[in-house]
Amino acid sequence: MASLSIRDVYKTYPNGVEVLKGVDIDIEDGQFLILVGGSGCGKSTLLNMIAGLETVTRGEIRIEDKVVNDLSPKDRDIAMVFQSYALYPSMTVRENIAFGLNIRKVPQNEQKEIIGRVSEMLQMSHLLDRKPGQLSGGQRQRVAMGRALARDPKMFLFDEPLSNLDAKLRIELRSEIKLLHQRLGTTIVYVTHDQIEAMTLGDRIAVMKDGVVQQFGAPQDIYNSPSNLFVAGFIGAPSMNFVKGTLVEAGSGVGLTIDTGVQKTVLNLPFSANAVRASIGKDVILGLRPERITDDRSAHNVADAQLQSVQVKVDVIEPTGPDTLVFFKLNGARAISRVHPSSNPHAHETLALLFDVSKAVLFDPTTEARIA
């Protein structure tokens, strides 16, 4: 196992394009780090720099307290799993797994033991004599993982390993990767654009945009307390509702005037007037997760003081099985709520929804930073 420290790292290409702009990340031995963000945010470039496939323009990368900026990939004791599998088509599964072992001149009897252990761990013992062309996409990715596992490195690097697979296989292999981490306890750095993978796999998540880490922390902390509008909208499926309005005083606290097309009311917010005094009378953006706008049955665990009933007009419904998504207008913009399927809402009807403001967040519409 190995800790990883990334300090003030920049990457600028000869044409002047700056891809990474002062990245700072620290994880401990055995932690699972997710680098998540949209295309072009710099996450794969950062992974390649950790692997030694890209040079560091400025800053420092340490693996287990050793600066590795100038170390070649083979001297970093890492193993990488690529999106494209990168298997040798003319070799069998057994030979693909053994390839790195042969280069390191591992004795044959030891190779046999390693291949047996790895193939059993990944449930692919029956595939050892097949070639990649005879395997499904999920099986090929298992082989790629097996080849990395055979190395027994200090750190695993995964570059969007599941993006080529269908939805069902992604879920299955996601679970396999999590189980592997639990069994092995090895440090993992994992790149993805899929926020569900990020939330379900990581101990720590670095949300990236335009070469900058927007927020770094535990998955639930990022979900509940996003630092800005980008993080709030990127993490969560469906994403957070953003409601534009003017912050007003409401009794001893503050509120936001909302209009659903059926009802106009002031939604009381859980912030003291003193805490947000600088924003009173100004435009703000209220953030509420879809599960915080719900029905009686789904809101039974929420304190009554945090619930406010609001009448809305249903535009569209999307049954998902365990719950139903209800789409409606809130201050002129589309909003989404989650209700229990037994509520059985219908398009165009008026529905009473309960707004749970206990996890509400406020953003500045100009800077997009979180206010409260």
Score class of each variant (00 low, 15 high):
R130T: 04
P132Y: 09
Q134D: 10
S136K: 06
G138T: 09
Q139P: 07
Q139I: 06
Q139L: 06
Q141N: 02
Q141L: 13
Q141W: 04
R142W: 08
V143K: 10
V143W: 12
V143M: 08
V143L: 08
V143C: 13
M145S: 07
R147D: 13
A148M: 06
A150T: 11
R151H: 05
R151I: 15
R151W: 03
P153I: 12
K154Q: 15
M155K: 10
M155P: 03
M155A: 09
M155F: 00
M155D: 08
F156Q: 14
F156Y: 15
L157S: 05
D159S: 01
D159M: 06
D159H: 05
D159W: 03
E160N: 01
P161G: 09
L162D: 13
N164C: 01
N164E: 08
N164S: 10
L165H: 04
A167Q: 09
K168I: 11
K168F: 02
L169Y: 08
R170A: 11
R170D: 09
I171F: 01
E172L: 05
L173H: 13
L173D: 10
L173F: 04
S175G: 10
E176S: 02
I177C: 12
I177P: 06
K178M: 08
L179N: 14
L179T: 15
L179K: 14
L180Y: 01
Q182S: 12
R183G: 01
L184I: 14
L184H: 02
L184E: 09
T186M: 07
T186N: 02
T187E: 08
T187I: 07
I188D: 06
I188F: 15
I188Y: 05
V189G: 05
V189E: 06
Y190E: 08
Y190H: 14
V191C: 09
V191E: 08
T192C: 01
H193Y: 03
Q195G: 12
Q195W: 09
I196P: 11
I196A: 10
A198K: 07
A198I: 05
T200L: 04
A206Y: 01
V207R: 05
M208D: 02
M208K: 04
M208S: 03
M208V: 04
K209I: 02
K209Q: 13
D210V: 00
D210L: 02
G211W: 07
G211L: 03
V212E: 08
V212S: 00
V213Q: 11
V213W: 10
Q214G: 04
Q215M: 11
Q215L: 10
P219S: 05
P219E: 12
Q220T: 08
D221Q: 14
Y223A: 07
Y223T: 09
S225W: 06
P226H: 11
S227D: 10
S227Y: 03
L229A: 14
L229C: 12
L229R: 09
F234D: 00
F234P: 00
I235T: 08
I235G: 07
G236A: 09
G236M: 00
G236F: 08
A237G: 11
P238Q: 01
P238Y: 07
P238T: 01
M240T: 12
N241V: 10
G245V: 06
G245N: 12
A250N: 10
A250P: 00
A250M: 12
A250F: 15
G251P: 14
G251M: 01
S252E: 15
G253L: 03
G255C: 14
G255F: 07
T257D: 04
T260P: 05
G261D: 12
K264I: 13
V266A: 03
V266W: 01
L267A: 12
L267F: 10
L267W: 04
